[in-house]
């Protein structure tokens, strides 16, 4: 499943060194992330955990090239992206990254299939076969012509995952992917993530969900903008996802 474009399959997909991000807030500067250094290898499933406001989303934004770091370096698939201009970051998001959001982010006026096809459209490509394949993969072939409001929460998140995979990313980034789902649906999404990871896709998930965090192979814990630990995942606990 993992269509990594790297010429060195064993090289880390993510290498962060002294990664920091500060934002001006009024007259003061808030350090949202301080001096984070870590690596994520190919086919790893990493969960970023920590309390609200700890800097998880800031780190995800940096990893997803939605923002540039204030200092430090970040390499994605061997490419230094920390100094990339907006156009370069856009290309990288389009061609190498996949995003899944807590709020699904589906375009309500488009059908499921059209939503899935959007990343290819922005890359000036058309690949109907890939759309069919992904809809089949997430179990939504029969819902391809439905619009998002006709889907359940779980189906919407599956459609969003299919969309994230459209351009064959090297890294899938998910921000609280089970946050808007009931426990049973959350479990099915977790299972889908596991399958994708088993197929070789590298995943980084920001989550408050203990089951999801436990299912990950590794947990990066952040507190007050500082990466305080990197620990292997543990077997899922009995309570369901958020």
């Amino acid at each position: 499943m993992n269509p990594s474009k790297s010429s060195q399959p064993s090289a880390p997909v993510v290498i962060a060194r002294g990664l920091s991000k500060s934002y001006p807030r009024g007259s003061v500067t808030v350090a949202a992330l301080r001096n984070a250094s870590f690596e994520v290898g190919p086919s790893e499933f990493v969960a970023i955990v920590g309390p609200s406001g700890s800097g998880k989303s800031t780190l995800l934004n940096l990893l997803g090239c939605m923002d540039a770091p204030t200092s430090g370096t970040l390499q994605l698939d061997g490419q230094d992206v920390s100094q990339l201009a907006d156009s370069g970051r856009t290309r990288l998001r389009r061609d190498r990254l996949g995003f899944v959001f807590q709020h699904f982010g589906l375009v309500p006026t488009l059908s499921v299939a059209e939503n899935v096809a959007l990343p290819a459209f922005f890359a000036r490509r058309s690949d109907p076969k890939r759309v069919d394949e992904l809809l089949e993969r997430v179990g939504l072939s029969s819902r391809r012509h439905h619009r998002p409001h006709e889907l359940s929460g779980g189906e919407m998140q599956r459609a969003a995952i299919a969309r994230a995979l459209m351009n064959r990313p090297i890294l899938l980034l998910a921000d609280e992917p089970t946050g808007n789902l009931d426990s049973q649906t959350g479990s099915s999404i977790l299972e889908l993530f596991r399958e994708l990871n088993a197929d070789g896709l590298t995943l980084i998930v920001v989550t408050h969900n203990p089951s999801l965090a436990s299912a990950a192979g590794r947990r990066l814990e952040i507190q007050d903008g500082v990466l305080i630990s990197s620990t292997p995942g543990s077997p899922p606990k009995p309570h369901g996802p958020r």
């Binding site: 997803g64 939605m66 907006d86 856009t90 998001r93 375009v107 959007l118 990343p119 922005f122």
Partner: peptide
Amino acid sequence: TREIGVLRALGASPGD
């Protein structure tokens, strides 16, 4: 606005 953010995350350029 949020949808614009999603489209940008999916790879839409400012020109798009």
